[in-house]
């Protein structure tokens, strides 16, 4: 009984960590630009697919993985430069459509450049499960959790201790004031897309040995990352992490105890419940009426 529960929690935290990374990307871009980037899931896809094909081309892992992340970072920067920056001031819906257009373009490109098949990467530790209190955990899952924690710690250090991180925070609170004190908000925006691209790619590389990857893998992962970001409160990095874990664990518990058929619906049931009871998310600022 407890072993089963532990097992579900382990897989919940593992997938939750991935949602958290995707959700963080949403939050960072939202903070910098108030744009919801519906191409966030495609960063995840690019990370996984690029890694798979670079490895298949004979590159060693140590070279292939950073290259895959770099590719997603460049795509993120390109997306901002080509599509988001020229559309400044457009309505929320228009911006949503632009990022959706980008996601369709990126999926199509991936199918063309790579292929339409499912792929996987070798996990660390040869995929042999480790036994913990009657439950088992894959070495790769341990890596996912540890890597996510390390990335989160690094991000918080970046926002707390570096000038660039501080500039990004300032821009998210008040773009006009940030501009007035001499912050290059244009650069902050580009950097946000670069960071989100990198985070997505890392998530994609980490999950591929466990969950496989293909050109369309980003759609569901993106939507679930979006709900994770929103469960926690849009624009709150801490909230995105908490939201990711909540969604991941709830999904694993549902699959285990209720119905594996409705596993994918869990994230959306949670987000509806949260939105209806707390319209600005669990950790979001709660505003009164806004006049």
């Amino acid at each position: 009984m407890t072993a089963a529960l532990l097992q579900y929690l382990i897989s919940g935290v593992t997938i939750g960590a991935i949602y958290a990374l995707v959700g963080l990307g949403f939050s960072i871009i939202y903070n910098a630009s108030k744009v919801i980037n519906f191409a966030q899931g495609e960063f995840v896809m690019i990370g996984g697919m690029a890694a798979v094909f670079l490895v298949a081309d004979g590159l060693p892992m140590v070279a292939a993985l950073p290259l895959a992340v770099l590719l997603a970072v460049l795509v993120g920067i390109g997306l901002e430069r080509v599509a988001i920056a020229p559309a400044r001031g457009a309505s929320v819906v228009t911006l949503i459509i632009i990022t959706i257009g980008a996601s369709i373009l990126l999926r199509g490109t991936a199918q063309l450049v790579w292929d339409r098949n499912f792929h996987t990467l070798p996990g660390i530790g040869g995929g042999m499960p480790i036994e913990v209190l009657g439950a088992t955990i894959l070495p790769q899952a341990v890596l996912v959790i540890c890597a996510t924690m390390a990335i989160v710690a690094a991000l918080f250090w970046f926002f707390k201790a570096t000038r660039t991180g501080q500039a990004m925070l300032a821009t998210s609170y008040d773009p006009t004031a940030a501009l007035l004190v001499g912050i290059d908000t244009r650069r902050v925006l580009t950097l946000a897309f670069a960071l989100a691209g990198g985070l997505g790619a890392i998530a994609g590389i980490l999950i591929t040995p466990i969950g496989m990857t293909y050109a369309g893998v980003g759609v569901m992962l993106g939507l679930k990352g979006f709900s994770a970001a929103m469960v926690g409160g849009l624009g709150s990095p801490m909230g995105a992490i908490a939201g990711g874990l909540v969604v991941g664990i709830a999904e694993a518990l549902t699959a285990g105890y209720l119905s594996s058929a409705y596993k994918d619906a869990v994230a959306f049931v949670i987000i509806l419940l949260v939105l209806v009871t707390r319209p600005s998310g669990l950790f979001g600022r709660r505003d009164g009426i806004s006049l």
Binding site: G101, I104, L105, R107, G108
Partner: peptide, 15 residues
């Protein structure tokens, strides 16, 4: 190239 063209046209029009 269908979805590439579609995505690009969509983005371009909205911009």
């Amino acid at each position: 190239y269908e979805s590439i063209v579609f995505g690009a046209v969509l983005m371009g029009m909205m911009i």
